[in-house]
């Protein structure tokens, strides 16, 4: 495998509140290669969005990166001064947010926003930047871009607006894009179109994409690899087909079984008892142990480290013992 575009090593993020210091991200590590889509999936409170925000340097007080490192093309970016990080953001790394309505300024024409972003990062004059903006709108599938470029955001439908947001993220040809729940605010029929667009763009442009979502279906459709997060830690990470169809971590197993599908006509869904712990009360040892049917004594004491098992990494003591037996 070629050198990863983004490399996250043992990342820790903490939030300081009046009551206590809460650890939102605890020892997350992964790489994303050129042209690869890493899906990061988890339920609310799993820390998936915080991870994305940490990578592109958008953690604001009371939050802070308290450990680990983030490398972009081999260069450390987590400890850069804000001024330098701002230059990298937009130029090298970009972000697509959940709500296309709030990511665009309603008072400016779509073209003005694109041209401004392009000229901030690339040495182009007005004319060149406008041509590039039209190219980008074409690329993200907006019909009649020469005309639509002079429209205001409210004149676009939800799906078209999200396409504009994607074009905005592509302005400076970034190497890495974080897409945070890009389809959650959209209808099913539009969601499918946006998913395939993100997938296509990642491939064609050789970008590394981190796709953050709670929707396993979106991951299955788009991602090459998937990281399942739970309580700020990565429970399982590996090729999407393996993880989705044959999950190994008990949480990942439960999660897959809990999703109703069109294919399987089961009467009962698999049910994980309880709910995700709050940050203020993450259990000792493995964070999943109180909800886990296979937990044993060690799970309540030691936090499991990610173990290489069957082409993926699983953070679960079960597989440690298996390994030992073998």
């Amino acid at each position: 495998m070629s050198d990863p575009v983004i490399s996250v090593r043992n990342l820790q993020v903490e939030f300081v509140t009046r009551r206590a210091t809460l650890r939102a991200i605890d020892g997350v590590s992964f790489d994303i290669a050129r042209g690869e889509v890493l899906g990061v999936v988890g339920e609310s409170g799993a820390g998936k969005s915080v991870t994305g925000a940490a990578i592109i340097g958008l953690i604001e007080p009371p939050g802070r990166i308290s450990g680990g490192e983030i490398l972009l093309n081999g260069r450390r970016i987590d400890n850069l001064p804000p001024e330098e990080m701002r230059k990298i953001r937009g130029r090298k790394v970009a972000m697509i947010f959940q709500d296309p309505l709030t990511s665009l300024n309603p008072l400016f024409r779509v073209g003005e926003q694109l041209v401004e972003t392009i000229r901030t990062h690339l040495p182009m004059n007005e004319r060149q930047a406008r041509d590039r903006a039209i190219d980008l709108l074409t690329e993200v599938g907006i019909p009649a871009p020469e005309k639509r470029i002079d429209g205001y955001p409210h004149e676009f439908s939800g799906g078209m607006r999200q396409r504009v947001v994607i074009a905005l993220a592509l302005c400076a040809e970034p190497d890495f894009i974080v897409a945070d729940e890009p389809t959650t605010a959209l209808d099913v029929s539009v969601q499918a179109q946006i998913i395939s667009l993100i997938k296509k763009l990642g491939r064609e442009r050789g970008m590394a994409v981190m796709l953050v979502t709670h929707d396993m279906g979106v991951i299955a459709e788009t991602a090459d690899r998937v990281a399942v997060m739970y309580a700020g830690r990565v429970a399982e990470i590996g090729p999407v087909r393996d993880v989705v169809q044959r999950p190994m971590h008990p949480y990942a197993k439960g999660l897959m079984g809990a999703i109703p599908t069109l294919e399987a006509a089961t009467d009962r869904l698999v049910q994980i008892p309880g709910s995700m712990p709050r940050l203020s009360s993450i259990p000792r040892g493995c964070a999943f142990n109180p909800r886990c049917g296979e937990a044993f004594a060690r799970c309540c004491v030691d936090q499991p480290a990610p173990l290489p098992v069957g082409g993926r990494h699983v953070a679960c003591h079960l597989y440690e013992t298996l390994e030992a037996v073998r």
Partner: peptide
């Protein structure tokens, strides 16, 4: 039929689907 085809394919069965067009 279009709605059904728009649902992400979790089983990755590779069932053929008509791409969804347009918006509401």
């Amino acid at each position: 039929r279009m709605l059904l085809d728009a649902v992400p394919d979790l089983a990755m069965s590779g069932r053929a689907r008509i791409p969804v067009a347009g918006e509401i």
